[in-house]
Amino acid sequence: MKGDGLAARANEAISRLKQDSGHVLGSRKAQQVRKMLVGQHVNDGWIAKIVILLLLAVIGFLYLQPVFYMISTMLKTVSDLIDPVVQWIPRTVNWQNLSDAWRGLRYPEAFANTLTIALVCSVAQVCSCAVTGYALARLKFPGRNLAFFLIIVTFLIPPQITMIPLYAIYGKLGWLNTPLVFFIPAIFAQGLRGALFIIIFRQFFLTQPKALEEAAKIDGASSFRLFFRIMLPLARSACLVVFLFSFIWYWNMYYEPSMFLGKDFLPLSLRLNLMQEELMGNTAINFNAGFGKDPISEGPKMAAAFLIIMPPLIVYMITQRWFTEGIERTGLVE
């Protein structure tokens, strides 16, 4: 009898241990599942990652939706454009819109004009703004703080306020209707967004250790040689950021060319406005001219916009990695 009681107690103890171990294993699995879903921190779990991915997908779609609409519209025929059933995917791909836009923009000539302005002014601004930013950051001269204050003021003043005085000055100098209205200010660090680029270079050079300058000066290097042999090579990331920003802004500018340039030297942004007159006689897109509406359909206009934005997109895709590194090193994300 005693042996049977001991055996029963032993079985009960073993069953309790099994139940306790089962509860422990179940709690551990529940903790692992909870840790996997929620994570130790807010952004470690799968739930937070899924929410972040969905949010990024929505934001990405909002940014890319105009580009998708542009590509979809430029590939549509006239029947697809007037058919409300066709939304994104055209029934037949129409490459004629690109051909019309190419001719309407006079793309080779306008592309050469735009590239000349953007490339020359960007390189000039990188050089001039780098020198100005280094002088404001490292050199001590009378009126340095006042000069930096005036540069900030020029950055804060809207360009529309200074447009009439600049037009009068350029007219007296004989620069109107020529690219000199963009080349000369860029050479003297007063081009498009020049004040911003000076501030970027100044902040970059302020972060460099003074030991480099002291060692160079001990070796007998002048300020000129110190800048071009030591400081400027260190500022390659800042130079790339300034070049890309300047190139994109000069490529996309519209207000300044419409004020200063004539019909002999038109960039792509102004050619887009003149494309309607260039394509008036094209029967392929003049389908609704008899109803008193705009004879230029959405297809050629979207194709023209696509041709305009493609070169900057290609430049950015090639230099994306270096551009991101430059943003981090110049402190623009702070």
Rank of each mutant, 00 (worst) to 15 (best):
M1S: 12
K2C: 03
L6I: 11
R9C: 07
A10D: 13
R16S: 08
R16I: 06
Q19M: 09
G22T: 11
H23R: 15
S27V: 10
K29L: 15
Q31E: 13
L37R: 10
G39F: 08
G39T: 10
W46R: 13
I47R: 12
V51I: 15
V51D: 01
I52S: 06
L53E: 04
L54H: 11
L54I: 12
L55E: 14
V58H: 07
G60K: 00
L64K: 00
L64T: 08
I71T: 05
I71G: 04
S72D: 02
M74W: 04
M74E: 09
I82R: 15
D83W: 14
V86D: 04
V86H: 08
Q87P: 00
I89D: 01
I89K: 12
T92H: 13
W95V: 15
L98K: 09
D100N: 12
A101C: 01
R103P: 00
E109R: 14
E109C: 03
F111C: 00
A112F: 14
I117D: 08
L119V: 14
L119I: 02
V123W: 04
V123P: 10
A130L: 01
V131N: 05
G133F: 06
A135F: 03
L136W: 05
L139G: 03
I151T: 06
V153T: 11
T154F: 03
F155L: 15
I157C: 05
Q160W: 07
I164Q: 01
Y167I: 07
Y167V: 08
I169H: 05
G171C: 02
G174S: 05
L176A: 08
N177Y: 14
P179T: 02
I184W: 13
A186S: 15
G194F: 02
A195C: 02
I199S: 08
F201P: 07
Q208A: 05
E214K: 02
E214W: 12
K217E: 13
S223Y: 11
L226V: 13
M231L: 12
L234Y: 07
A235C: 04
A235I: 04
S237I: 05
V241R: 02
W249K: 10
W251C: 00
W251D: 05
W251Q: 09
W251Y: 03
N252Q: 07
Y254I: 07
Y255K: 09
Y255D: 14
Y255W: 11
E256I: 00
P257A: 10
S258V: 04
F260A: 06
G262I: 03
K263C: 01
P267E: 04
R271G: 13
M275I: 11
I285P: 00
F287G: 00
A289C: 03
F291G: 07
G292E: 09
G292Y: 12
I296L: 15
G299V: 04
P300G: 00
K301T: 06
A304Y: 08
A305G: 15
A305R: 05
F306P: 12
L307M: 15
L307K: 06
I308N: 06
I308M: 14
P311W: 09
V315L: 13
Y316I: 10
Y316H: 02
F323R: 07
I327A: 09
E328C: 05
V333L: 12
V333M: 10
V333G: 07
V333D: 03
